[in-house]
């Protein structure tokens, strides 16, 4: 920056007069701190204007300071503040004052109390609200899932295989929906009894002649899954499906005594 140019631009005169915008004024203040030449110039401009307006004043108002000091209750020597105690006011005024203060205090407390109560209520309502929101979200997610499943079941490529209840559980039944294109099976296990602790259902793909069972997976988290529909991979040319109850983690070969449901794949 060319300091001489800056000075002769006239910006400093406007700065002292207060005719610049706040932003421009800040800039000048910054430059002034950096360059003593600019500061000196500002001082001179200020002094000349100071003299000019001082000469317009009717007189030098030194004596008025006493009045200002008085209005502001400023003391020359704070150590000797005279203490004026007025005579005791009548007791009634005093008591009335106290009574009013206490009434006010009680009022304040009750307001405060009400406020706390309201805040508590608000918290409860807020908690309820977020609970309901959670429920709505859960329901939405569940509905979406159901719709997804419905779309799958309506797909024409899907082969549906009903699995009927066997000796251990004659009332039990399940359905296998087999998408042969994506090699996925959806097991609808809604009507299987809840497995006892430590046991899990295992799904088998069977090929006949000779009878060969191949495990295609476990129905884990049976109790937690609300829809009771499980998706498993099936790469086999299955001719039948069966579900057995096995120890947690599954078995290598099916425990035939615990065969719950069994069904043949039609037109295969």
């Amino acid at each position: 920056m060319n300091i001489q140019e800056y000075i002769s631009s006239g910006v400093l005169e406007l700065y002292i007069c207060g005719a610049l915008t706040e932003e421009e004024s800040k800039e000048v203040s910054t430059e002034l701190k950096k360059h003593p030449e600019i500061e000196k110039e500002v001082e001179e401009i200020e002094n000349s204007l100071d003299q000019l307006s001082s000469s317009v004043a009717p007189y030098n108002p030194t004596k008025l300071f006493a009045i200002i000091k008085n209005k502001l209750h400023l003391e020359d020597n704070p150590k000797t503040i005279p203490i004026h105690r007025e005579k005791k006011k009548t007791n009634i005024v005093l008591y009335l004052g106290w009574a009013a203060s206490i009434a006010l205090l009680i009022g304040l407390f009750s307001v405060l109390n009400d406020r706390n109560q309201l805040r508590e209520n608000l918290n409860v309502v807020n908690a309820q609200k977020s609970q309901m929101e959670q429920q709505i979200n859960d329901t939405k997610a569940s509905a979406e899932k159901k719709e997804e499943l419905l779309a799958i079941f309506r797909d024409k490529n899907i082969v549906t295989v009903p699995l009927d209840g066997q000796e251990v559980a004659p009332e039990a039944y399940a359905t296998v929906h087999w998408d042969q294109e994506t090699k996925k099976v959806y097991i609808d296990a809604k009507n299987l009894p809840t497995p006892p602790e430590g046991k899990e259902y295992q799904v088998w793909s069977l090929t006949l002649e000779p009878l060969t069972p191949t495990s295609i997976g476990m129905l884990s988290s049976f109790t937690e899954d609300e829809n009771k529909i499980f998706m498993l991979e099936n790469n086999n040319l299955s001719q039948a499906f069966g579900i057995t109850l096995e120890p947690k983690g599954g078995s290598k070969t099916p425990t035939m005594e615990q065969l719950y449901t069994l069904g043949m794949v039609k037109n295969s």
Partner: peptide
């Protein structure tokens, strides 16, 4: 004060 007095006056 004198300067401000002048401005006010």
């Amino acid at each position: 004060s004198e300067s401000l007095f002048g401005v006010i006056y």
